[in-house]
Design a protein around this nucleic acid. Structure first.
Length: 110
DNA sequence: ATCTTGACCTAAT
DNA sequence: CATTAGGCCAAGA
């Protein structure tokens, strides 16, 4: 069989490895995959991940910690609720102390 | 094979 | 300091 590893597969793998109470960004994931300019593709992969179960897409935000994809979830505050449920404080669609809880795969996974 | 879209990022004005 | 424009890569039609 052919292991058709696509960019999305890699993204899903990284996102699934995000520990609870932590968040990551599209740019960091893209950079970890070796394509720092493909941050858009990472975000698009998350869109597809919504139909796939097992992908904590709510733990992935943009570089400033803004819940850009909250609009794609079931409700409007679904993403915020999920994050707060895991211990992540969210204020005005922006993660509080985002710099302190950001999870960098290039560093954590090394 | 070409064109469009997309939950982004960086830099210039 | 805030806003605008461009670039970039991958997948779907």
């Amino acid at each position: 069989m052919k292991d058709e590893i696509t960019f999305y597969k890699k993204v899903y793998n990284v996102v699934k490895n995000i520990p609870t109470g932590r968040v990551s960004t599209y740019g960091l994931i893209a950079k970890y995959l070796g394509t720092p300019k493909s941050s858009r593709v990472v975000g698009y992969a998350m869109n597809v991940s919504h139909k796939i179960h097992g992908i904590p897409a709510h733990r992935v935000v943009n570089r400033i910690g803004l819940l850009t994809g909250k609009h794609h979830f079931s409700g409007s505050n679904m993403m915020k609720e999920l994050l707060e449920s895991e211990g992540v404080k969210v204020k005005n669609n922006i993660i509080v102390d985002f710099k302190n809880i950001v999870w960098d795969p290039s560093v954590e996974l090394d």
